[in-house]
Amino acid sequence: MEKVRHPLGRVLIHLALMLFALYSILPFYWTAAQSFKTLKDANSRTPKFFFSPTWDNYRDLWLRAVPENGATIAYFVLLAIILLVALLLFAQYIPVRNGVIYAIATVGFGALLWAIPRLIEVSNFYDYFINTIIVTVGTVVVSISIGSLAGYALARYTGLAAVVILIGALAFRALPRLAFILPYYWIGVATGLLDTHLLVILTLVAVNQPFTIWMLRSFFMDIPRELEEAAMVDGCNRLTAFTRVIIPIMWPGIISTALFSLLLAYNEFLLVRLLTQTNWTLPVAISRFTGGEDPRHLTLAAASAVSATIPIVLVILFFQKNLVKGLAAGAVKG
């Protein structure tokens, strides 16, 4: 619709949007503030808007014991993270192939995650963080690999079988998950896979598969058939035409879908809670802080909430365009 021109109208529009933005981020601001307060400040009945910030909550959340040279190590780790993030953010300006830079960054993050527990005594929370990374990466890799094969096939094949699979997937996506998750427990006991990453990854892949194939299919539908037909005339078979011609131009769509898979895996609580006893991921670990007997649960919960949010905010900032594109594609195409 055409824009409001009246200055007063413009001011009111921005005012309304700002108020809504304030309401949207208020819980984030408040929790972040609480996480940097001492327990006394955090429990103050009159909110302390000005306080001397402390790292204690984060230290107690992540570390079991405080080493003597703790500050040096902390600076080193922080510096390494900033360098790696900067490398990723400015990848397009560096005159090296992007794939190489991403590979270096991945190896760098891996090395960092490997090195940290060898430098300092970390707490269980670090283990839960590592579990979350393993489960999330595993789920994304498996569900995107098998999902793009299926999504491509569903976009190109017009037989009745394809329609039946699509509608079946739609039905499964809509059903309350507990109906599958409770039997997973039985499967876990029967196969002895309870409390393993493998079971969590496989079940998360299954639960996310309907969404993944629908979304990937809608992206594959946009790619003209002539493209792979030309490749097949030039001597490719279906599979090589798919991997060499279709996948490279599908990257934006694949990244959008991967982002949603990532969020679904990272966010999952119910499934992980039922299928694990010790190998928790972050949502399950954090849920333990709500209403604990520990008087410090208030500030520790705040610190854990912020800790779990930062990685996801970084990922979202990095892939924001893909995310909005994916949301819009899902919306417009249904």
């Binding site: 954090i286 949010t309 996801i312």
Partner: peptide, 11 residues
């Protein structure tokens, strides 16, 4: 993360 979002709102 919904668990975290609720925790933050609850704070």
């Amino acid at each position: 993360v919904p668990i975290v979002g609720t925790l933050m709102y609850k704070q």
